[in-house]
């Protein structure tokens, strides 16, 4: 897959950071506003997919390492599982951080509240971002038709 020309590439250069920042915002405010880990992760992955489309597969190959992305996806899942295990003395998925601290137990509505939810959103966001980018890269790499 070749790149898409100067205009698209310049626009993509400008917009990719903005898309990434917006996605990060959605992930970070997942427990306060509509959206969350999945939606934010998918938005960030949109930046990666835009990169793939605008700059082409060869450029993508330089910046994309399958092992790194696959490991990060696993790490996201493990973080999710680990956080849900924090309050295991009471129950699986018990929100210990929210009930007894030490952090993320601020006033509801503020950024540092809601216990494990922000961490879970981050973990899910990481997982969705890496997973979707990997899927798109795989679709671009392993297609069977010709250019």
């Amino acid at each position: 897959m070749s790149d898409m020309g100067l205009i698209v590439k310049t626009t993509a250069r400008a917009t990719i950071p903005l898309i990434g920042i917006f996605g990060s915002y959605i992930v970070a405010h997942g427990h306060l506003t509509p959206g969350g880990g999945f939606q934010g992760g998918a938005t960030i992955a949109g930046a990666g997919i835009l990169f793939l489309l605008a700059f082409g597969l060869n450029e993508m190959r330089k910046h994309y390492n399958h092992h790194v992305y696959s490991s990060l996806e696993g790490l996201g899942g493990l973080a999710f599982l680990g956080v849900s295990m924090l309050g295991f003395s009471v129950a699986f998925f018990y929100n210990k951080l929210w009930h007894s601290g030490p952090f993320f137990n601020g006033k509801p509505g503020t950024l540092l509240s809601a216990g494990y939810l922000p961490i879970m959103n981050l973990a899910v966001g990481l997982k969705v971002f890496t997973g979707l980018v990997s899927a798109m890269a795989a679709i671009a790499l392993y297609r069977r038709w010709r250019e």
Partner: peptide, 21 residues
């Protein structure tokens, strides 16, 4: 009871990391 789900979940998430070895 919860370990019936936790153990396979742990396996699924950690398999890509273990696979690096």
């Amino acid at each position: 009871l919860p370990f019936v789900i936790i153990i396979p979940l742990l396996g699924v998430f950690s398999l890509p990391l273990v696979g690096l070895v």
